[in-house]
Design a binder for these strands. Sequence first.
DNA 1: GACCAGATTGTCT
DNA 2: GACAATCTGGTCA
Length: 197
Amino acid sequence: MILNRKFYAQNAQIVAKKLLGTFLVHETPAGKLVGQIVETEAYLSSNDPASHSYKGQTLRNQAMFLEGGHIYIYFSYGFHYLLNVVTGKESVGEAVLIRAIEPVAGINLMQNNRQMEKISNLTNGPGKLVQALNIGNDLYGQSFISSPLKIYSADSFPELFRNRKFEVVTTTRIGISKGNNLNLRFYIMNNPFVSKS
DNA sequence: GACCAGATTGTCT
DNA sequence: GACAATCTGGTCA
C-alpha cells in the first residue's frame, strides 16, 4: 500500500530509517519504474547547518516547508537533480534525501534513461536514480500520495522483496562540509547499490 | 552585477 | 585519486 500522510508526518530521522526497504514507484507513459530504497539521509531544520532549510525559506527550497509527503527536488552542481521526501508538519523544513535504490522493475527503461547497461551503476547515487527513474523538475512541490511518483510500503510487493531481512547501518552523512558529525545517514548493510565514498 | 560554494557524476591518469 | 562540467541562491559591493 501507499505510504500515507501519517507516515510522512514523523521526524526526518525516523522516516529516513523506515524508508529503507520500501519501493519507489514512478508511473510513466513508457512504463512503470520501480526501485527499492536502500540508502537515505535525513536533513533537519534550523538546527542542522547542512540542511537547505537552515537559513530559512527561499524561493528554491519552499517545497521543503510543505506538509510531510511532498516532493522536494533540488538541482545540484548544474548537472543533477536530487530527490527528497518532505517530512514533519507544514513549515517545519525537514526532508529525507533518497541516496540510492535497487532496481526492481522497468530495468530496461532505466538502462535506456541512463544510457548505461551495467545494472550495478544504474541507481547507486542520488543523481543517478533520479535520471534512471526519469524524474524531472515538474514533480517539484507535488506529493508522493497523488502524483505519478509514489512510495509503497515494504510489504507491497512480497514477490519482489529480495531483502526481506536486513540490518540498518547508521552513520554520518557524506558529501557535505557542515554538520557532518551527525549520524543521519541510513543504509541497508551489504547492499551492492549503496553509494560508497 | 561579480564572486563563491555546493546534499554530484563521469572521465581520465 | 584528481578534476572538469555547469547552474543556482546567497553575499557583498
